[in-house]
């Protein structure tokens, strides 16, 4: 009998510059295909750059932002972007952007912006937490 493990994943690095978000994505895909559960992916620090809607990589390259969005659409994985990390770096939730006259469409589909509490709740609910990107 194989053991089913519940994971909470944290991504701390921006896409393309580091391998962290690729590794995290590959890990999540492998975990799911092995029958494990991914409770939540939490984007913290520079990891919030994974959630910018307007990322436009060249057509023959992997589209990291879309890849996450697909993970949410197909596997219903909760993709949470830390609100304070995001605001510090100029990624605003539509409702906040409206209040401060910021750009309202920055967040890519499939992601939601919320507090650090969701990370800690994810950790507590999971058997293991894994952090990608120092």
């Amino acid at each position: 009998m194989s053991l089913k493990v519940k994971f909470a994943i944290q991504v701390n690095a921006s896409p393309y510059q580091y391998q962290a978000s690729d590794s995290a994505w590959h890990f999540v895909m492998s975990a799911l295909s092995s029958g494990h559960e991914v409770y939540r992916v939490f984007f913290y620090n520079d990891g919030i750059y994974n959630a910018f809607r307007d990322a436009r990589p060249p057509g023959d390259e992997r589209h990291i932002v879309e890849r996450w969005a697909t993970l949410n659409a197909v596997h219903d994985i909760d993709l949470v972007v830390c609100v304070s990390s995001a605001q510090r770096r100029g990624l605003l939730d539509a409702s906040v952007a409206e209040k401060v006259s910021g750009y309202q469409h920055a967040l890519a589909d499939g992601f939601r912006i919320a507090g650090l509490g969701l990370w800690m709740e994810g950790v507590i609910e999971s058997d293991r937490h894994i952090v990608f990107g120092a």
Binding site: N45, S85, G117, W119, M120, V123
Partner: peptide, 12 residues
Amino acid sequence: EFLDSILMAAAF
């Protein structure tokens, strides 16, 4: 940001 995590853990 790490310190924020520590405080959040305590809050839980």
